[in-house]
Each structure stands twice: as C-alpha cells, then as structure tokens.
C-alpha cells in the first residue's frame, strides 16, 4: 500500500506537479513516527504508513503554520480517513481550496491511542477509541488511492466513541465540575491541544489577545476553565474528531470529551456531521427558521 503511495508521490514530485508531500516517516524511537515534508523525490523512500501514524497532518495546512507553506503551490498530503475529513472540513470553511491539495488516501486499520502504548502491533488494548466508531477507514475523498475503492455506507449517525463520556454524563453537575476542576489542575496551558488541531486556524488565538483579555492567560483553574470552554465552543460543529488534542496533551487531560459531547449534540439537533461534505455549511454559521427552541422561554 505504502509502496504505491511512495511511487506515486515520487512521480508527482519528479514531474513538478507537487511541491511537497507531507507524510509520516520513522520517528526517533521505534514506537513513534514523525511528520515529514518530502520535497525531493528521493525523500519519498522514507514514507511509512501504519498504526503508529497518529498525527493529523492537515494541521500543517491551516493558516497558523504559514511558514512551511511558503513556496508551496500544490501540496500533497497523505491522509488517514479522519485526516481527510479534516481537510474536507477545512475546505467547507473556506480555509483551503480543493485544488491546493492532492490527497493520497489509504485504507486505515486504526491507530494507536498513544505512542507509548505501541508494542509492535495494533490490537484492542492499544487502539485509539476514536477508531472503534470510524466509518472512514476507507477514506472519503482522495486523489490517489491504491487499488479499487469500495463503496461504504456512511449515512449512520455520529457515534460517541470515548467510554469515559458515558461515565461523565451520568455524573451530577457538581461532580462533573469537580472532575474537570481536578483534571484542569494539571493543565499548564502549553496549548498543544490548540496547535495540533487542524481546525484551530486563527492567526491570533483569542487567548493570545490581551486587549481585552477574554481568557485569563495564567494557568490558574479559572483561566484553564476559560480556555477549555472557549476552545470547545469554537470547535462546535467543526471538530472532525481526530482526538489529537487528547493524544497530544502532555498531562493527559481528555479535552476531546468536550468535542465528542458537542458532536453528539450537533448531530441530534441539526443532523450535521462534520467533515463529510465540502458544500454543507457548518451548523453554527447557518440557521433554519424552524430550529429547535425548547430551551427558550
């Protein structure tokens, strides 16, 4: 599979059709892979694709990371199904044009939840929970796909995958607040959750603005609550559920639970699943006159 992608990538880099191919290469430890920017045809030999490829590479396509994009006219990107959903969502939000990217897709068997759990193979014990409810293991929209792409029914509703969510929803409000307060105690606001996110594409994040200061910059609990609520609200109806925010968190705060909860709400209220269409507008930038308003007096 990866051989065919390597070959195609090499061909397109040689012909000059692509300036760069973003993919995965072997990392510095056997348990890890690392993003690689292939600019020369021979770089494509380093490409790998397996269960260790956790990164959501479309993060490099959004505006925040303008620097490596300098001089790229057409970018090739190797994507798992969930990554390609992120690209689709970026296009739906006008953050990217479809003809700026060339998508290499491949069937994905799931990825490891965290590199430190990699023990040579992917199995139930270490596979990320997001993969259990995945309907894009055969990716949605690709320019290159090794072999024949089978038809997949993706009409089903969004399924919450994190088992922890069920536990949290059952709690009382007070307990849930206490749970987050205790977890957020560890947060030191490194913003890894923001930086790995393909959808956090603001050039200057609201937390980095100090006049006015909407979110306290210091990492006391109040400021951490402010940040994670803001982040979650800004991703409502946009998050494609790659789970990188949780995976990247150095102190293992499962911030994607907020996103998963909101995806469920959006699915139920507006029948919208992010990352499946380049045309349908995300729910919060549009409206229906007969939207649900049971909560309004």
């Amino acid at each position: 599979m990866i051989e065919q992608i390597r070959e195609k990538a090499r061909e397109l880099l040689e012909s000059g059709e692509l300036d760069v191919v973003i993919g995965y290469a072997e990392g510095s430890d056997p348990t890890r892979t690392t993003p690689i920017f292939c600019r020369k045809p021979e770089d494509t030999d380093k490409l790998v694709l397996d269960g260790r490829c956790v990164n959501t590479l479309p993060a490099y396509l959004n505006k925040r990371h303008e620097y490596p994009k300098k001089g790229w006219k057409k970018t090739g990107i190797i994507g798992k199904g969930c990554d390609i959903r992120a690209i689709t969502q970026l296009i739906a939000e006008n953050q990217l044009k479809r003809d700026e990217v060339y998508i290499f897709g491949a069937e994905c068997e799931g990825v490891v939840a965290h590199p430190e759990k990699w023990d040579g193979s992917l199995h139930e014990g270490n596979c990320a929970s997001k993969c259990s409810a995945c309907d894009v293991k055969i990716p949605l929209d690709t320019d290159f796909y090794p072999g024949e792409k089978p038809e997949v029914d993706r009409s089903g509703p969004y399924m919450v995958s994190a088992p922890a969510l069920a536990t949290l929803v059952k709690m009382d409000d007070e307990d849930r607040f206490a749970f987050w307060r205790d977890d957020f105690d560890r947060c030191f606001k490194c913003y890894a959750c923001r930086e790995v996110c393909p959808h956090c594409s603001c050039n200057i994040c609201i937390t980095d603005r100090t006049m006015p200061s909407w979110v306290d910059q210091a990492a006391h609990t109040k400021g951490v609550f402010g940040w994670h609520l803001t982040r979650a609200m800004h991703l409502v109806g946009r998050c494609t559920g790659c789970g990188e925010c949780t995976r990247a968190c150095p102190v293992n705060i499962q911030v994607d639970l907020f996103n998963q909860k909101m995806k469920e709400v959006i699915q139920e209220s507006f029948d919208y699943k992010s990352g499946y269409s380049m045309e349908v507008k995300p729910p919060l930038i549009t409206y229906n006159t007969d939207d649900q308003e049971t909560y309004i007096r």
Partner: peptide, 24 residues
C-alpha cells in the same frame, strides 16, 4: 519545520524558566 509551536517541551522542561507578566 515540523514543529507545531505548542509549549509542551518548554513547560515540561525542568530548566525552562521564561515567564510573562500580565495584570488580571
């Protein structure tokens, strides 16, 4: 160039010591 610009390395680092000051 693959660096995404988060502060995980610096905040976990035992010797990194940079700080900012704001009025809250």
């Amino acid at each position: 160039e693959k660096c995404l610009g988060c502060g995980a390395c610096t905040f976990e680092c035992p010797t990194c010591h940079c700080f900012d000051i704001v009025d809250e």
